[in-house]
Design a protein around this nucleic acid. Structure first.
Lengths: 135, 135
DNA sequence: TTTGTAAATAGGAATGATTACGTTTTGTGC
DNA sequence: GCACAAAACGTAATCATTCCTATTTACAAA
């Protein structure tokens, strides 16, 4: 995923192109790791004085829906990063810097068989720790 | 885990025995599924007029630390249930009623090998959906 | 049984993340 | 350029949780 592709997805879905949206995408493309709404707000406030929470959160939710971003929830805070692959995968997540490492192994197929009468909607498999740089 | 064993753990760790703590344990023993702080508060308020948030949250955190309860975080809310096994395991969790089904399969051993330079602290593997009763 | 004291609780304020909402501004198709 | 719907502003509200101080209580030692 890159800014160009993301703006195409937005246009396709009938959303407007704004400079704030482009900035948000640039932020996530540059960072390429999990970042919080607060992190984005700090970045945006430096560029757009008086930007509102509404703009931050509305766009984060929108981009998440459109799968331009992927999200997770850690210690009571939602985190977002630029969508990193088009196939099913999981992540190692660095608790210090938010960097992720893709994990392609997923045990769901095996497990689904054992949950016969259960309706499985989704699942979360994440590994937490410190990346090589942070420890 | 049952109330008796939990009270023994409390005593062992030097914590006091109070009727509120016993009530909290009774609640989770009866429920035997993930419940929120709010659920517990409702239960406790019916029994102890004017019980404070502090008592609810302090004891939830304490019981979680002592592994009398196990916890997870779902949709921005912490959930707790009575500790259900003494070996490593994961859960299917029903989104409607909070009932859990133990999953003994864990792919971490295989994955740890692939994350050579990473310091792995912990991991979360949860399956969400509807239990046989709720769908 | 009484007493000292550290732990537990009450009551409510504070915090932090997120959502809501009425008003104003701005992109975009015509 | 114009009209209109979407986006953003500014700020209040909400929700879960934590924090704080005064008061009460459980428990152990005398």
């Amino acid at each position: 995923m890159n800014t160009k592709k993301a703006l195409a997805i937005l246009k396709e879905a009938g959303y407007k192109y704004t400079d704030k949206r482009e900035s948000i995408l640039t932020f996530f493309e540059q960072e390429d790791r999990y970042r919080s709404a607060k992190d984005l707000l700090d970045y945006m406030e430096a560029r757009y004085e008086g930007i509102s929470f509404d703009t931050i959160y509305r766009n984060l939710n929108l981009f998440d829906e459109l799968e331009i971003l992927e999200s997770t929830e850690l210690d009571g805070e939602k985190l977002y990063q630029i969508s990193c692959a088009d196939h099913h995968h999981h992540h190692f997540i660095c608790r210090t810097c938010g960097v992720t490492q893709e994990i392609d192994l997923c045990p769901m197929d095996e497990i689904a068989k054992k949950l016969n009468n259960y309706m499985i909607e989704d699942h979360k498999f994440e590994i937490y720790g410190l990346c090589p740089v942070c420890h």
